[in-house]
């Protein structure tokens, strides 16, 4: 799926990294625990999370993850945004619950990592 389609489907706001909005995404991983994200060998994925702090961006930076979707109305802080811009990470935020977002994206064809 193209990131733009995902944003549109979920009525998600693109907080930063608009320049990657036409990139394609095939896999997604959902977690509120960054410890779980740091164990993944894959980088090509959309990270879906309900945790909004700077460590989420740091985790993505170290893991080479280029796109994060914040769910449940979690707001990206200015500090998170600045770091993400610095690292070339696209941030999206939407209001729906984790369950709904994952269900919709799965149905639309995004694949799980395992």
């Amino acid at each position: 799926m193209v990131l733009q389609e995902i944003a549109k489907m979920l009525d998600a706001e693109v907080v930063c990294g608009q320049e990657q909005i036409n990139k394609n995404i095939r896999h997604a991983f959902a977690a509120d625990l960054m410890s779980d994200v740091l164990r993944l060998d894959t980088s090509e994925m959309l990270l879906i999370t309900g945790l909004a702090n700077v460590q989420v961006i740091r985790t993505a930076e170290m893991s080479d993850i280029w796109c994060i979707l914040f769910v449940r109305g979690k707001q990206v802080t200015p500090e998170m945004r600045a770091l993400a811009e610095n690292c070339g990470i696209t941030l999206l935020q939407c209001k729906q619950s984790m369950f709904k977002v994952c269900g919709e994206l799965y149905q639309a064809g995004l694949l799980p990592l395992y």
């Binding site: 509120d32 625990l33 410890s35 779980d36 740091l38 164990r39 702090n53 460590q55 989420v56």
Partner: peptide, 15 residues
């Protein structure tokens, strides 16, 4: 609450 503390850090450092 910060997203850590799953007891996977040291094993992940080994890996």
């Amino acid at each position: 609450e910060m997203g850590f503390g799953a007891g996977m850090g040291l094993p992940n450092m080994r890996k």
